[in-house]
Write a protein that binds this DNA or RNA. Structure first.
Length: 593
RNA sequence: GGUCCGGUAGCUCAGUUGGACAGAGCAACGGCCUUCUAAGCCGUGGGUCAUGGGUUCGAAUCCCAUCCGGAUCACCA
């Protein structure tokens, strides 16, 4: 990598001359601003405290030495305390010619076994836009970490039991008339979601009526017959009542079938799926065992708590007074189990930032329990997707449904394509192309924003297909693809034998420099767990290529063969990086559009 | 109230370890299709980087305080 060669060499020169031990970091070159002449810039100011020279003298010294030692540095300019280094055109030409798949690959001396848990939906309602963000981040992070040579295991934990599930079961029994996804002609997750909403509205009515008769609100919830039935259902389920379990497993399978359809459209897959119904008891034993060690407290009412005030947290309940487990009990159990099973180096939970506290507690509890691997668990917390009126609320129906949104994206892509007169509907790949564009728009829209920030989605302003968007980048790719096809038809072949006597345009140098950046970007995005870095990089690359494309003939030029071939190779390289980068975001490229 | 996160153009967002005059897209306005795809390109306008201090050669970036917004502190998940 050219930048590290420069920083290394500069470091050696400087340390030798001034007998100090500065690290490479002090010499890391930044990209020269476009208004100045040069490619990379070293800033002199931080070095001044180690030498008695003026910035200009120091820059001259370093500039001369670097030029001497590195043959790809042809010249330099000093402006104030900035040493602007000029890289030879030949270096860039060589880089472009030799660029290939291997130039994109990442070295990693310390590959890790990484588990990523994401998605983990409740099986009582369909997926919404918040889940989409979760899933896309999970997939993209997995891709990026895999690309960095780690072994990645994608898992999901289906929350398929509990009171919320029983509510839908009660509602379906009461008002369902044995309706099924087939008879209703509806996806199973949506069908069940309707019953969840039905339960909530009926329940709210019941409470309201109880309050009208003079019963205080907190007592009303206890007197609610509906809730009582749901609780009874839960108890029967836990005792393994055959009829209840059969009902539960039927309704669940409908929802899961529905999820799988949505997952398929989103391109989401898992290496392993865990079911809460199979793991929910696992934490309890651990808690009971810890009780004897004195780290946790048995309260008078038989509930079990742990005091985390020393850790800057609060008191936390671990088992209810009736002996049943809470959310964190299960997470303790599954974590312990999963570490035993998978022996991971790192375990990420892709879960929204509303649960930051929960995961802090989880780690502290495991630490206190003496599990040394507690610090391998990391909460990858991401921001909420908000609507113009605020947070999405499933109970109030204020959600953007995942399937609806996907369908809308497809319809828009279809209409737009027709309007632009792009691809013929009779094209056998038509649906496939439209689908890729639609999903490209959706996925890029989500992934281009910094995961840790909340983001806004306005349903009235549908997701764009122009400008800083997925389709823009895909379009750039198809343009290049079309050139490559044309070159193939005209029998123009890149043959690796180009001589280096080519007049480089500024925009070409810019593009080659950017290709050179790709690995750094992927590295950074893996280190900071931020797919948005790749998204923004790819957009910039596409933008620069389009600008270049506009005023530079690639193969239709009258220019000599070697220039044609050189430009063709450059275009191919850009296409390769675009395809690779979008792939890391889980976005497919169409071959034409 | 405690803790955490955020505040950059009318709107949505970049700007990671401090570097040269703060960037895109959308929206508005004006140009560019006998040419390798106009889902494109070029241009114009638009900013007290929430506010006030500090650190230093240099701050949107680091520190402190204040204001505003959000999340969280359940025998919910």
């Amino acid at each position: 990598m050219i930048t590290s060669v420069i920083s290394n060499t500069a470091k050696e020169i400087f340390n030798l001359k001034y007998s100090v031990q500065l690290s490479e970091k002090s010499f890391f070159p930044i990209k020269t601003k476009s208004e100045f002449d040069g490619d990379y810039t070293l800033v002199m100011f931080p070095l001044l405290s180690f030498s008695k020279n003026t910035p200009q003298e120091l820059a001259k010294f370093l500039g001369d030495e670097l030029k001497n030692k590195l043959d790809f540095i042809t010249d330099y300019q000093i402006i104030k305390g900035f040493l602007n280094l000029k890289i030879s055109g030949k270096y860039w030409i060589k880089y472009n010619i030799e660029f290939d798949e291997n130039s994109c690959k990442i070295q990693n001396e310390n590959p890790l076994k990484i588990v990523i848990e994401f998605s983990s939906p409740n099986t009582n309602k369909p997926l919404h836009l918040g889940h989409i963000r979760n899933n896309l981040l999970g997939v993209s992070l997995s891709n990026i970490l895999t690309f960095n040579n780690n072994e990645v295991i994608k898992v999901s934990l289906l929350n398929d039991r509990g009171i919320h599930i029983c509510k839908t079961m009660v509602a379906w029994e009461k008002w369902g008339n044995n309706i099924t996804p087939e008879s209703a002609n509806k996806k199973g997750d949506h069908l069940i979601g309707d019953f969840y909403v039905k339960f909530q509205t009926e329940y709210d009515n019941e409470i309201k009526n109880l309050i009208k008769t003079g019963i205080p609100e907190n007592e009303a919830t206890e007197k609610s017959e509906l809730l009582c039935e749901a609780k009874k259902m839960l108890k029967k389920w836990e005792r393994g009542n055959k009829k209840v379990v059969e009902l539960w497993s039927m309704l669940n399978s409908w929802v899961i079938d529905g999820f799988n359809e949505t997952y398929q459209k989103l391109g989401v897959t898992f290496d392993k799926i865990y079911y809460e119904s199979e793991t929910y008891l696992k934490g309890k034993d651990i808690i009971l065992r810890e009780l004897s060690k004195g780290n946790i407290i048995l309260e008078n009412d038989n509930s079990v708590t742990i005091d985390l005030t020393e850790q800057g947290l609060d008191k936390k309940i671990l088992l209810r007074s009736d002996g049943t487990s809470v959310y964190i009990t299960q997470d303790i159990g599954t974590a312990v189990d999963r570490f035993k099973e998978l022996k991971f180096d790192k375990h990420f939970y892709v879960v929204g930032n509303e649960q930051i506290y929960h995961f802090k507690v989880l780690r502290e509890v495991l630490k206190i329990f003496g599990y040394e691997w507690f610090d391998k668990l990391e909460h990858f917390s991401y921001g909420m997707v908000e609507l113009p009126e605020g947070k999405m609320k499933s109970r109030e129906g204020k959600v953007v449904d995942a399937d609806d949104l996907i369908e809308e994206m497809i319809n828009t892509a279809d209409a737009l394509s027709q309007e632009l007169g792009k691809i013929d509907k009779s094209d056998q790949n038509y649906n496939d192309i439209i689908f890729k564009i639609a999903m490209g728009a959706l996925k890029y829209f989500i992934l281009k924003v910094d995961p840790k920030k909340n983001m806004l989605f306005d349903p009235k302003e549908s997701i764009d297909f122009n400008g800083n968007t997925g389709p823009f980048i895909q379009y750039t790719y198809t343009r290049i693809n079309s050139i490559i096809n044309k070159a193939y038809n005209e029998n123009i072949k890149f043959d690796n034998q180009i001589d280096y006597d080519i007049m480089l345009k500024d925009k070409e140098i810019e593009l080659i420099k950017e290709l050179n950046e790709f690995k750094n970007v992927v590295n950074d995005s893996a280190k900071t767990l931020n797919p948005a870095l790749i998204a923004n990089y790819t957009y910039n690359l596409a933008k620069n290529f389009n600008s270049y494309y506009q005023d530079t003939p690639i193969i239709k030029s009258d220019s000599d063969e070697k220039t044609k071939k050189f430009r063709l190779k450059l275009s191919q390289n850009v296409a390769l990086v675009i395809k690779t980068a979008l792939g890391l975001l889980g976005i497919d490229v169409p071959e034409k559009m």
